[in-house]
Structures are given as C-alpha cells and as structure tokens.
C-alpha cells in the first residue's frame, strides 16, 4: 500500500487554513531538505516550476518531526485548531 493510501485510512478533518507555514526564503537556500526525508506522510515536496517547498498539510499526522528536523527553522508548526486534524481511532 502506498503512503497516500495509508493516510487515506485515517480519520482527518481538515481546517481551511494550514497549521504549517514555510519560510520560502530559507527553503530556497536549503540543500538537505530534511523535511522531505523525515515526514512520515510524504507530505513535503519541491515544486519544480516555482522552486517553492510545498507541504500538503491536509494529511498531517501531527507528529511534529519536521519542526524538529528543520534545523534552519523555516517551519512554523502549530497544532491544528480544536475539532481539526487527525483523530486516531486506535492510537
């Protein structure tokens, strides 16, 4: 099963606004792209046309690993508002 299909198994209620914001001026200079390596949901990717880093916040598992892994501090990461985000049924 692909990671996208795995995330589709989860109960997630998405807010209209993202709880993750990226500082593209920092992302633009980053070579390591730690966020891409660590994200268990495979949610980070580089938009080849614009050169921007993109995060699909809608599939976020709320582990916070990207926030810790980005040593350049380009990621502002908060919990989604109450009522939103992933709701684990097993945990």
């Amino acid at each position: 099963m692909k990671v996208e299909e795995k995330i589709a198994l989860d109960a997630i209620k998405n807010d209209k606004e993202s709880h993750i914001t990226l500082d593209q001026t920092i992302c633009g200079k980053c070579k390591e792209r730690m966020c891409v390596t660590v994200c268990p949901g495979h949610l980070y990717s580089l938009n080849k046309e614009t050169g921007d880093m993109v995060v699909e916040y809608a599939g976020c598992l709320e582990c916070g690993t990207c926030k810790i892994a980005c040593i350049y501090k380009a990621i502002t990461w908060e919990y989604p508002g109450g009522e939103f985000g992933v709701q684990y049924r097993y945990g």
């Binding site: 795995k6 198994l9 598992l61 582990c63 690993t65 810790i68 049924r89 097993y90 945990g91």
Partner: peptide, 9 residues
C-alpha cells in the same frame, strides 16, 4: 487488513 497509519515523536 490495515486500519490506521500514525506517527508520533
């Protein structure tokens, strides 16, 4: 059957 996919630190 897989039922959930989760992550935590």
């Amino acid at each position: 059957e897989q039922k959930e996919y989760s992550a935590h630190i």
